[in-house]
């Protein structure tokens, strides 16, 4: 069965792009969330195999959401999606338990690599 991925990003554009990439690489999109709060809620409901987590989001940011998800499931696989200037936030997310990161603008090759490294 295809591994399931939860896509978290407040931007529709990014979610669409990620969804396409996830599916192209043979994985399934479990669900999408538009902020950290929703991400945590949906993680509980779906227990996806992996989460792609945007950092800057309304309500709850990706770092906090990563922390909460790690509290729920210490084996959770979270990949944070950061912008170029967000190095400190990436560091924080990695400390919070994220397994990997991708930098926007996202490149298909990098997304594939990150997904495969964790899921294969």
């Amino acid at each position: 069965m295809a591994k399931k991925i939860l896509i978290v990003d407040d931007a529709q554009f990014m979610r669409t792009m990620l969804k396409k990439l996830v599916e192209e690489n043979g994985y399934e999109v479990a669900d999408e969330a538009v902020n950290g709060e929703e991400a945590v809620k949906k993680y509980k409901e779906q227990s996806p195999d992996l989460v792609t987590m945007d950092i800057t989001m309304p309500k709850m940011d990706g770092i906090e959401a990563t922390r909460e998800i790690m509290d729920i499931d210490s084996d959770a696989n979270v990949i944070v999606c950061s912008a170029m200037g967000q190095k400190p936030m990436v560091v924080e997310s990695l400390e919070a338990g994220a397994k990997d990161f991708i930098v926007k603008p996202i490149k298909p090759k990098k997304v594939k690599e990150a997904l495969n490294n964790i899921l294969e």
Binding site: A11, M14, D54, T56, A83, M84, G85, K104, P105
Partner: peptide, 11 residues
């Protein structure tokens, strides 16, 4: 919006 931020950052 992230793209914009990024562009600005590059600029």
């Amino acid at each position: 919006m992230d793209m914009d931020e990024f562009q600005e950052m590059y600029a």
